[in-house]
Amino acid sequence: MVQHSFDRSCPDVSVVAPLYNESANVVPLVESIFGALAGRALELEVLLVDDSSSDDTWERIHAVAAPARVRGIRLAHNVGQTAALMAGFDHARGAVVLSLDGDLQNDPRDIPAILEKLEQGYDLVCGWRQRRQDGLLLRRLPSWCANRLIGWLTGVRVTDNGCSLKAYRRELLDRLTLYSDQHRFIPALAASLGARVAELPVRHHARRFGKSKYGPSRMVKVLVDLITLKMITTFRARPFVGFCVVALLPLGLGLCFGVAWVAALTGFGGAKASVLVLASAALLWAGAAFYMGMLGLVAEVALHGEREATPDTPSVQELA
């Protein structure tokens, strides 16, 4: 991985903003970012990632682009927020990288405070939207449930996982690969890599231009993705153990039915018919547990075949 930190030609801070059909927000966004950091001795670059918008977002970006200060990246096809963010991270050169929404709902005036928090020795600082300006039933309530679930499953208790305003150290981003819809789980994923994570209250505004791209269909997806999240944060280096944990439930059920079966056989009440039912139930669940364990071995084979660096490959510094 390239170390950017000490290279003077690189900016101190990169701000990454993914945009999808946000043409009216481009200019105000760039102005407010530079306005918020005016007067500070910081080398700043702003990366605007156009996720293949169908409106004139790219033309607006092109108009405000300035060498080294404001850079535009136009993606070939619409890939969604996670991949657009990843495109920005891959192109950012700063020792610290900030991400924020392209819709002006985050307030760039919070950036100095976030940077300050990062300086206190954290690798990731997450914004925590105060007085969130979104609908209660379709946005805030599901989001509250999801945050609690994530905290409970992964042990990384961040109040607001969904806030896009975040600051990362370059060393963390070099190890963090986001795909699918993982932008919702960044704190948990970062913490699983050993990152120190903090959160900070930030402002939140209602949308001024454009419209939201979120719909209710994502709730089921988030639930499924949570299972994956647990799998890859806790068990990615030992999938067999993970699958055995999953197998515990069917195994327990199988044992219960097995005990009942033996009890029925030895004549603690129960007709001959229930012996058959109990036996098949016990065998079914024992079979499911066995099957899960075998799949865990398949996952171990996949892991073993991976010769390239995985996130668990340590990066080592020799101090003296």
Partner: peptide
């Protein structure tokens, strides 16, 4: 499947850049 995807993720990008400024 998720395990395999996760292991391949560091070497894979789903976006492609059309142009930069």
């Amino acid at each position: 499947g998720e395990m395999i995807v996760y292991l391949k993720a560091p070497h894979r990008r789903s976006y492609r850049v059309r142009e930069t400024t």
